[in-house]
Design a binder for these strands. Structure first.
Lengths: 192, 192
DNA sequence: GTCTATATTTCGATAGAC
DNA sequence: GTCTATCGAAATATAGAC
């Protein structure tokens, strides 16, 4: 049936993305070759081009995963709504809940910022709003005092980047404790 | 005189590093070619090899700059001293003071984490202790409660990463205000 | 959908003159 | 210290068979 073929293709596509995600995090986007991705999947490099038009396209798809993670549900991207500190906290709390299941994706972004931005420059018509770009736009709202905007930036960067450190050294903590403490930290920064 | 030749060489070396720093931040380490660096300096690619043994060597020198920035003065790297939250705050406060004059260097690290780590893997004998590695070691001290270590990680990541956002959108703030507010945020996270 | 083989390009690095 | 010229390696991407 057509249905089966479609799902099989989709499955392979997702498998490629999973492998690419692991390698991009471990070695970095630029130092990971398509040959390596293909080898780990058990087929040849050329086969990747049946599923993705280019290497950038693979990163773009992973970008999309992260984008979905941040901007779906949770009331984002705030269709026209003006940002407030309260909304910011709500958004970050929602995001923190998703962290344990999506560490790799966040690590990808943290460790390959330059590659993501180059992608954005090149394919600006497809990447309509980069992650950082949308958050920056929210932080540019002049109706919020500068000092509060600094706090909002620190809070966001703290949970994104703090994860890289905590991943290895805090294995003793459960996900629930981690999530809970990240929220407390965010609330402390934003004085809620 | 020999003195003059030496200083001239040193000056060129530093100029190369300055240009490389700008390009590595803007385009990313991997997507910046030696040809571009040389072109911007007004001489040929091969000339770079008189001053640096390899492209990695240039990044290594910039790594050294960052290393100096973080671990000189300020009582680091804590020769054997056990880390405490109080010491952590002191260290971060000292670091925050240096931020305005060294934004590019921090941005380099934030935007090219993967490249830095690859460097570390390859030249482990020369990069005796990577930035993140030393900080991670401090955060692994089991005598500090897990929750407090999360806070310490968030505080550090917050000031490193928050800078990337604040750079563009908070041009209205003076460096003094920025430094002051970053310190307040750090203190809030660490409940000092 | 996956393969082999190859085209094309770009880059890091070296050799040797000046 | 800087140049021109070139090497060699690796990577992305394509062509065409199966």
């Amino acid at each position: 049936m057509v249905r089966e073929r479609v799902e099989e293709a989709k499955g392979t596509r997702e498998r490629i993305l999973d492998v690419a995600l692991d390698l991009f995090v471990e070695k970095g986007f630029d130092k990971t070759s398509l040959r390596e991705i293909a080898a780990q999947l058990g087929f040849s490099k050329a086969a990747l081009y049946y599923h993705f038009a280019s290497k950038d396209d693979i990163l773009l798809a992973l970008h999309h995963r992260l984008h979905q993670l941040m901007f779906v549900d949770d009331g984002w991207p705030l269709g026209g709504q003006r940002i407030t500190v309260g909304l910011w906290v709500t958004m970050l709390d929602g995001f923190i809940d998703k962290i344990p299941a999506n560490r790799q994706l966040i690590a990808l972004h943290e460790r390959n910022r330059a590659a993501f931005e180059a992608l954005h420059d090149k394919e600006h018509e497809r990447v309509h709003g980069d992650l950082d770009e949308q958050l920056l736009a929210a932080l540019e709202d002049p109706s919020i005092p500068d000092r509060q905007r600094v706090r909002m930036a620190v809070a966001f960067a703290g949970i994104m980047g703090g994860l890289l450190f905590s991943g290895d050294s805090l294995g003793g903590m459960s996900n629930e404790e981690m999530v809970d403490e990240l929220k407390r930290a965010v609330h402390a920064v934003l004085e809620v």
